[in-house]
């Protein structure tokens, strides 16, 4: 019994430590600067005011950052589906020469972290005059090896009879991909979608490289613009902005914990 009490206490304490940054962020986001810079330590804000949140939206273009995040994530996700679902389908449900080779390439591609390809991709985009565009933010990610791999696993588990039946029913291969195959692997598709959106919503590296225009900043980059511009004096609104930026991921996670964990855990397969 005492063992159990110790265990529960330790786990709660640990969880609390994990949450400290979040709690501190929330606390600061409601405090005004007088309170923040006062030397007394007070966890709870004196009063709940949304001033910082209003400032975050009016003084900097937080809305713009969020919109950019949505555009980039959605653009990437749509293309990743368009490219990887048909490819994974063909790799499992069709027989053609070179199938093994292509799958071998996919596995090899899975081993290459994105950072490795950054320099040549940057050069190419610069040559094409595409730096500082949404295209530059989206194009490098359109073909996801991880997506192909994940969908291939999911399709391989389906009965080939289903696809033969669809062929006899008069569906074209393209129709089979979108009307039969994809709906049947919805859990895998959701897991992949969550993985992809979280990864690109949170990514800073590529945005830092191909954009210099604050109007194209995705949320993490936007936060940094904000922080650097205010040179540390506007902590309250900055914290409010971070709350807003992480909110979609956190809310999504709390609402669909199982799917989220599945999606991110599956991401471990990626190099």
């Amino acid at each position: 019994m005492t063992g159990r009490i110790i265990l529960v206490t330790a786990l709660i304490l640990g969880a609390f430590l994990m949450l400290v940054p979040f709690l501190w962020m929330l606390s600061l986001s409601f405090k005004d600067s007088a309170e923040i810079f006062s030397s007394t330590l007070d966890f709870f804000p004196a009063r709940l005011s949304l001033d910082n949140y209003i400032t975050a939206f009016t003084k900097v273009d937080l809305g713009r950052f969020l919109l950019n995040g949505v555009i980039v994530c959605a653009g990437i996700l749509v293309f990743q589906f368009l490219f990887s679902v048909p490819c994974a389908y063909a790799l499992t449900q069709r027989r053609f020469r070179g199938r093994q080779v292509i799958f071998g390439l996919v596995l090899a591609g899975l081993l290459v972290p994105f950072h490795v390809t950054a320099i040549p991709l940057f050069l190419a985009l610069a040559k094409l005059n595409l730096l500082d565009t949404y295209t530059a933010l989206i194009v490098p990610f359109v073909s996801s090896m991880f997506g192909i791999f994940l969908f291939r696993q999911a399709f391989a588990a389906l009965s080939p009879d289903l696809f033969d039946a669809a062929r006899l029913d008069g569906l074209s291969e393209t129709a089979i991909v979108w009307r039969i195959a994809l709906p049947l692997v919805l859990p895998a598709a959701t897991a992949f979608g969550i993985f992809s959106v979280v990864a690109h919503w949170n990514d800073l590296f590529w945005n830092l490289i191909v954009t210099s225009d604050p109007n194209l900043a995705t949320p993490p980059r936007g936060i940094l613009y904000f922080r650097d511009r205010e040179s540390g004096s506007d902590i309250g609104p900055l914290m409010a902005a971070t709350v807003i930026v992480i909110a979609p991921m956190i809310v999504g996670f709390l609402m669909a914990q199982r799917r989220f964990i599945q999606g991110l855990a599956a991401g471990g397969l990626k190099g």
Binding site: D161, D164, A165, A166, R167, L168, L184
Partner: peptide
């Protein structure tokens, strides 16, 4: 397969779930 106009009942029935 479509043009042959044959119908098939599969061993596993192959109904779309």
């Amino acid at each position: 397969a479509v043009e042959r106009n044959v119908a098939m009942v599969f061993q596993s029935y192959a109904l779309y779930p």
